[in-house]
Write a protein that binds this DNA or RNA. Structure first.
Length: 568
RNA sequence: UGGGGCGUGGUGUAAUUGGUAACACAGCAGUUUCUGGUACUGUCGUUGGGGGUUCAAGUCCUCUCGCCCCAACCA
């Protein structure tokens, strides 16, 4: 992966496993993985971890990773999600290099294999409803009850399944079940359902099928069809592994597996503090209008993060760094943010923007022949981290805006910024000293009067005197107005819903603050859609991809002064 | 209730497989600095608990405690 100052990737138990497999000849050195999203929602950071795990493992061992849409449930899936997922995946850094694969492409093969299992007495058609089947399954430590239909003849099962396949029955009339063991201690093996009847139209196969395979029946077999070797999934599927193996074992013994039998490995999904990664709950945030859509910058969706300005490379580096383990854990969102800052610090162009403007009048600033304040142009570095980014100029004149927080009539302890009688530097321009200020009826400072020292042009005093603070500024006459959205945690609790069980109880009502009338230096008007720049001393801000002069705060700078105030 | 998985600083991830517990984030203190940013330095503090084997235990044995997952015709 690209250059980075971050430390190398954490070790990864799956990686170690593959090394061992290659050493012992399992899979003959082949590594084939797959990323199998269900097209029923958009990708989020949690998927990013799975994606990097799958794709990078394959890349490292010169294998390949398939994108396979696990589209076995016509009720919830849609092509718009297929397109969205492909788009987000490409943005993350994994553009499609060939046609994507679909479980639905294997429906015929899967159904044929199901018939093969039936023919061998390994599956049967059950006429009972879901509730009854569920009751008969028993419970943890409690025995299961065999279905009265469990011992139908092969011929009868074949005929019924053919009818199911042909669409002769209503939804719920029958299911196909694997005949395993109703007393198995692993509930997944108590005659799991392989097929159910659905009359819903499928986003790809339309109405050509009225039976759909369940996840368990589809997944391992799809892996086998594609020649997958290492099938990674999240921890909650560990009890499914026995079933994954059982289906494959039967097919292998019946001699129909095209490749070696794939193996399933489980790892912990990515959880972050102050956010959620449940597709269902994310969908609820969108549906309820808590956020503006799937690409709301407060969402952990890939498209939300992209709009927020998170560089894809930084997300990949983060995933690489946290590694792959089996421990249930929740990473601090601050760790992700530190990766974002590290990368942006190197890349982002520096600009000056005043979010909450305070007017500053330089009382000794010269005027020209027409009586207008003189305008000078000062040169500023685009990025102190990278000299190749060069410089730009910004207009400077007698009336400016500075950040409201950068002046205090009565300075608190350790305050280094502008205050009556104190001299500070305006970045790249001049030293100024506050002489006076104007307040409104409520006592708020609305204007500051200062004098400047003409000798300090460029930002340095010939006599070598120092100032405690350098501040950003924008010339009032040249300022470009913009809207800026500041973001805070979407959920105020570290673990949303930890208290009440409902994450929505922990929603942060102030997760977004929209500022109008922010004052930008002219160069900022040319920011490309989606580009992330650093507003000096404030943070990184992404230009909205669609709306000009709207910026989203990607992440703030580390702020020592804020910490000092917080400690107080 | 039966089965499975997992416990390492505040957080997360490592530890040559029995050999100095490390890395990052966060915190704290400082140096540098035309961003209270960056960079750099220092500092803080940990193997869930008990017992055992061993010259030596995060690692092996044993007991114990805690957390997570599984009883959809979702994935």
């Amino acid at each position: 992966m690209a250059e980075t100052s971050n430390p190398p990737a954490a070790a990864n138990f799956v990686h170690d496993l593959v090394v061992e497999h290659n050493a012992t000849g399992v899979f003959g050195g082949r590594v084939q993985t797959r990323f199998p999203p269900e097209p029923n929602g958009y990708l989020h950071v949690g998927h990013a971890k799975a994606i990097t795990a799958d794709f990078e493992l394959a890349r490292e061992f010169d294998g390949a990773c398939n994108l396979r849409f696990d589209d076995t449930n016509p009720d919830t899936e849609d092509t718009s999600y297929v397109d969205g997922i492909i788009e987000d995946l490409a943005w993350l850094g994994y553009p499609l290099d060939r046609e994507p694969l679909f479980t639905s492409d294997y429906f015929a093969q899967l159904a044929d294999w199901a018939e093969l299992l039936i023919s061998n007495g390994l599956a049967y058609v059950d006429d009972q409803d879901g509730e009854t089947i569920s009751e008969q399954r028993g419970g943890y430590g409690k025995p299961g009850v065999e279905s009265p239909f469990r011992n139908r003849t092969v011929d009868e099962n074949l005929e019924l399944f053919a009818g199911m396949r042909a669409g002769d029955f209503d939804e719920g009339a029958h299911v196909l079940r694997a005949k395993i063991d109703m007393q198995h201690e692993n509930m997944q093996l108590r005659d799991p359902v392989m097929y159910r009847i659905r009359k819903e139209s499928h986003h790809r196969t339309g109405d050509s099928w009225s039976i759909y395979p369940t996840y368990d029946w589809a997944h391992g077999q799809s892996d086998a069809i594609e020649g997958i070797t290492h099938s990674l999934c999240s921890l909650e599927f560990d009890s499914h592994r026995a079933l994954y193996d059982w289906y494959l074992d039967q097919l292998r013994e019946l001699g129909v597996l095209p490749f070696e039998q794939p193996l399933q490995f489980e790892f912990a999904r990515l959880e972050l503090t102050h956010t959620i990664t449940s597709k269902r709950k994310l969908a609820r945030l969108v549906a309820d209008g808590v956020v503006d859509g799937w690409d709301d910058p407060r969402l952990p969706t890939l498209r939300g993060l992209r709009r927020r300005g998170y560089p894809a490379a930084a997300i990949r580096e983060f995933c690489d760094f946290i590694g792959v383990s089996k421990t249930n854990s929740r990473h601090e969102i601050e760790l992700l943010e530190s990766f974002i800052r590290t990368r942006l610090n190197k890349l982002a162009q520096r600009r000056m923007a005043v979010l909450e403007p305070l007017k500053v009048v330089i009382t000794n600033w010269p005027t020209d022949a027409a009586g207008e304040p003189v305008v000078e142009y000062v040169e500023l570095k685009n990025n102190p981290e990278n000299a190749e980014d060069g410089t730009r100029t910004a207009p400077f004149s007698g009336v400016l805006y500075i950040e409201h927080d950068d002046f205090k009539a009565e300075p608190p302890p350790k305050y280094y910024r502008l205050t009556p009688g104190r001299e500070v530097r305006l970045r790249g321009a001049y030293f100024i000293t506050a002489t006076d200020f104007v307040t409104d009826d409520a006592g708020n400072v609305v204007e500051v009067h200062v004098t400047y020292d003409p000798e300090t042009r460029g930002g340095n005093a010939p006599d070598g005197r120092k100032v405690k603070s350098t501040m950003h500024w924008v010339s009032a006459a040249h300022a470009v107005d913009a809207d800026v959205a500041l973001y805070d945690r979407l959920f105020s609790a570290e673990v949303p819903g930890a208290e009440t069980g409902d994450p929505f109880d922990d929603l942060n009502a102030e997760s977004r603050t929209l500022l109008h009338g922010c004052k930008l230096e002219p160069a900022l008007a040319a920011t490309a859609p989606g580009e992330v720049v650093q507003f000096e001393r404030l943070g990184y801000f992404a230009a909205d991809p669609r709306t000009p002069l709207l910026f989203h705060r990607t992440v703030g700078l580390r702020d020592e002064w804020a910490n000092i105030q917080k400690r107080k």
